[in-house]
Design a protein around this nucleic acid. Structure first.
Lengths: 226, 226
DNA sequence: GGCATCCTTAACAATTTGGTAATTGCCTGC
DNA sequence: GCAGGCAATTACCAAATTGTTAAGGATGCC
């Protein structure tokens, strides 16, 4: 990934927009902007940013309205939202947070403070990405960076697709992945492969690993378990 | 779980500690307290709270020191930290957030605002728990993600239709499902199957589970109960 | 170019599942 | 006690699903 994360900033004051953009880009974020509530919603749907900074007082739709609309869509469950506002009264502070925002910052705010808060919020989701490294289940460990699978310190070489498939299953041991899920997550949505393809790869994995850790759930999918 | 989440509050002013405790407990949180930095660390290691509220100015160890110590241990990777302080200058604000805290609140702060911020932070981790659609009734647990039925830790393997049927019944224990309802919900409206089909599946479930938890309501339907 | 590996597909075997029909058993009302 | 209605049981078959194997095209590496 080229950028640390993507951020959508919505404010009707052009100056503020630019100041924030400058500071966030300096930190390595990809920044999108919108200058009113309606535009913010449209932009959010298009670019699906990791975090959205919303001014509350905006034309067409207030930040709170935007927040409510986005929060009602499951696509934006994981999107972080920060309110930015000149209102400093306690009530709107609470209202903002309770409407599903993750943070609330009062204007005037120094760019540095804002950046710090953005970093603090994004630190959590970034960690998830980083952590998805080595998976260890029982005496099997899978290292996606080194592309190595080890069973009791014995290295096993898997082909790319086999590896991706195994890694997916092992990332949530016990959980059943539907054939469709597997296709989407390993092959992607735009590639169409025959039904037997998955089976053949599963077979090779089972064969190469020697251990029986991939279980078939007929009519449903496959799962990884020791 | 009895409590929504557990929170450790560390502050050297007893009054503040009590006010915060009162307000958080009112919200349904389990609250632990510590009155200096050292104590906060010890307490954190013992109770592993979901969130820690740290006053910055404390004897023995400042909040920032506590934060750094805890953050350096992987056990506390997922622990949320909020700084609470009278210092309102920008520098400590940034320093606090950059040292790995998740939020920073300046004193004097109204309890309501603090509670809102706590809620906002915890909302994210609580969601993870909700996702588990595991149904548990008595000593039977049904996990649709892992496609597993457990009776007193004994795994039972059910076929797809059997599983779906059992999951439906168990999702509302005690409630009677009409044969028609069952057909619609498990088989769908467009598939037509004979009347005896349900019985046969029910029989297989009873047989495999070994426990008599599916009750027939003659002329009406079936229900799940222990 | 030649070789090896990987990915996919096709064909067939093996297995499991879901559904049906026939029979039996149980309860209820008469 | 008997008939009727409904559910339980059993055995069986067809359909759906997966396992296995082999083969061909694609790709990359000497």
């Amino acid at each position: 990934m080229e950028f640390k994360a993507s951020i959508l900033v919505a404010d009707d004051e052009q100056d503020i927009l630019e100041i924030i953009r400058y500071n966030l880009e300096k930190e390595g974020y990809k920044v999108y902007t919108a200058s009113n509530g309606q535009q913010a919603i449209e932009m959010a749907k298009q670019v699906h940013p990791n975090l959205i900074i919303l001014d509350i007082m905006m034309p067409y739709k207030t930040g709170i309205e935007v927040c409510n609309i986005l929060r009602s869509q499951s696509d934006f469950n994981d999107t972080l939202i920060i309110f930015l506002t000149a209102l400093n009264d306690e009530l709107s502070h609470i209202k903002g947070l309770d409407s599903g925002a993750d943070d609330y910052v009062s204007k005037p705010v120094s760019p540095k403070v804002l950046v710090s808060r953005v970093n603090a919020l994004l630190r959590r989701i970034q960690k998830d990405g980083e952590n998805s490294k080595i998976v260890t289940v029982g005496n099997i460990s899978i290292d996606p960076e080194k592309f190595i699978v080890r069973i009791a310190d014995e290295e096993v070489i898997l082909a790319k697709k086999e590896f991706e498939l195994l890694y997916l299953l092992a990332s949530k041991p016990g959980r059943v992945f539907l054939r469709n899920e597997i296709l989407n997550l390993v092959w992607g949505t735009d590639v169409i492969v025959g039904d037997r393809t998955i089976d053949v790869h599963i077979r090779k994995i089972r064969q190469k690993l020697g251990v029986d850790c991939v279980t078939t759930v007929k009519g449903v999918g496959y799962k990884f378990e020791m």
